[in-house]
Each structure stands twice: as C-alpha cells, then as structure tokens.
Amino acid sequence: MKTVTIRLTAPLQSYGDEANFDHRTSYDYPSKSAIVGLIAAALGYRRTDSRIQTLNQLDYAVRIDQPAEPLTDFQIVEWKRGKRKLTYRDYLQDAVFLAAVGSEDDALIDRIYWALHHPRFQLSLGRRANVPAGPIMTEIALGSNPAQVLQFLSWHASRFYMKKTKSATFVAELIADAALLPNHRSSMVKDNVITFDQRERQYGFRAVAFDRVPLENPYHPDRTAETDHDMMTFLWKEDQR
C-alpha cells in the first residue's frame, strides 16, 4: 500500500456536517467527503463526474495536530424577493490537520500526489472561500495504511502553537476508517460522497474509529536542553591540550 499525507492549514476551514439552512455547522476535523472533493478538484473532476465515486474507496485517516478555535459568522441572505433571513456559518480558526489517503493502487496515489501540486481547479478547505495557507505540503509513505502512517509521523502544528504548549508530549486525536482501527470505539458519520451535484448533493454513512496519538514537542525545555551545547568551545579546549 502507498499513502500520501496532506497538511491542511488556513486562517479558516469549515467541514460541513448535517445542518439546516439557518445554521451551517462544521465537523471538528476534515471529513472524508471534503478530502475527496479536494482531490477531485486537483484532478480536474467536475461535480457530476462519475470518477469521484472511485475516490470513496481510498483509505482515509486524519490527525488533529492543532485544534481549532471555533468562529461563528452571520450572513443576511435574500431567500425570496423582499424577504431577508439571518443565517449563521461555523468555521475552524488557525487549525492544523494531517490527513492521509492510501490505496493498493500505487499509480492512483502518485497521480493524486502530483495533482495536489498541479491542481486543475482551485483548492479549498471546506468552503470555496477557505483557501489553503500557501502550497499544500505532502509526503509519500510506503507499506503502511493511513492510520499507521499518522501514528508515527512527527507533530505538524505551527511553531507558535508548539512553543506555547507547556507539556513535553501533545496527545493528538486520530480519526480513521473503522477498518483501519480495529478494536477501537467507532461511530457512523454521514460524509461518504454520493454526488457533489449542487442541485442534489447527497452523502451516505460510513463507519469511523477513534484513537489518540502521543507526539513529542520539540520546543519543550526538556528536549531543547538535550542539544544545548557549544561545540566551538569544546573544539577550542581540545586544541589547547
């Protein structure tokens, strides 16, 4: 199996779950349907392209490396002539997620990796206005599924967040396809893509499982002290002998 990891960060992200017109809420992490949409846009698939269905078969996992600060915005919309309505939109501020998709089809993962750096359509993190904070960072891993890869990768939060974290270890939440985390607690979420057609968007249910991953904080004093030495002073002393 080949897996590609995708670092997702932006001032605002939003991954809509089931909601009504008045209040559009968001998952606390990137849904699988959002990542399928991101990949489909990179590959140049239009909303009604049947090839999107094949992307549902990708194994998927995501790790919350920097939890979001929630933000609720409001908009006034005219839903009938002369009639206006106040609606609310939820966003995730300053979050960093590490998503991973994997497949036994190595050529498909290679195409996804290339497309994410040469996208055909604009990439967004949830809603169209939520553009990534710079080029998307990706890595390829061989021989491991997405959940296994995310259990061993180093912490990918922002430097500022790492420095303000007081503990030497940060415990990140991991959410994955239930089949990737057997014997873990699981639940059903409605984020399996049936169609992205704007006239009739539809999503099906899939099973997800949860785990927690301890990650070393490279900016904690206990770790920085390990490299707190002056090599030039050591060389000077050796030279005086």
Rank of each mutant, 00 (worst) to 15 (best):
R212N: 11
L125I: 07
P11H: 12
T54R: 08
L215M: 13
L180C: 05
A209H: 09
N56E: 06
T72V: 15
K190C: 12
V77P: 02
V171Q: 08
P132W: 06
V149M: 02
F210K: 05
I175F: 09
V189L: 02
F210M: 11
D105N: 13
E200A: 00
H220T: 04
K164N: 03
V36Q: 02
Q240F: 11
K2T: 15
D65A: 04
D17F: 07
Q202I: 12
L123I: 14
P214W: 00
G16S: 11
A207T: 01
H118E: 02
T9I: 08
H117G: 14
T165K: 02
T3G: 15
T195S: 01
K85Y: 15
H184M: 12
A42M: 02
H184T: 08
K164H: 04
D105F: 09
L55N: 00
P119R: 00
A68Y: 10
A225H: 08
L180E: 12
Y91S: 15
F170N: 06
D105T: 03
A10R: 05
R63V: 15
Q148D: 03
M162S: 06
D105G: 06
N20Q: 13
N183L: 07
D59L: 13
G82A: 13
L142G: 12
R206L: 04
S187F: 07
D222F: 09
D105W: 08
T9S: 11
D230P: 03
E69M: 05
D177L: 00
A19R: 08
E226G: 01
M162F: 01
R63M: 14
R159S: 09
V189R: 13
R223N: 14
V62P: 02
D105K: 11
R51T: 03
G44Y: 06
G82H: 07
R185F: 00
A129L: 00
F121R: 02
E238H: 15
T3Q: 09
L142D: 13
Y161W: 15
V208L: 07
L108K: 05
Q53S: 14
S33Y: 04
L98D: 12
S124N: 10
Q93S: 07
T224M: 09
R241V: 04
E139T: 15
Y27S: 15
L150W: 00
I6D: 08
D228Q: 10
T224I: 14
Y161E: 14
R212F: 02
T54A: 10
Q75K: 14
Q198M: 06
E173H: 06
R120S: 11
Y29C: 11
I39G: 03
S144W: 05
D22S: 07
V62K: 04
L92Q: 09
R199P: 03
H229T: 12
R128M: 09
A207M: 07
D177W: 06
Y88S: 01
D22G: 10
A100E: 10
F74L: 12
E200D: 12
A172G: 04
Q13D: 07
F21H: 13
R81N: 01
R63I: 15
T224R: 10
M1L: 05
V96R: 05
F152K: 14
Y91T: 15
A141F: 06
R84Q: 09
A34H: 04
T169Y: 01
Y29S: 14
V96I: 12
H220P: 05
E104P: 04
Q122T: 02
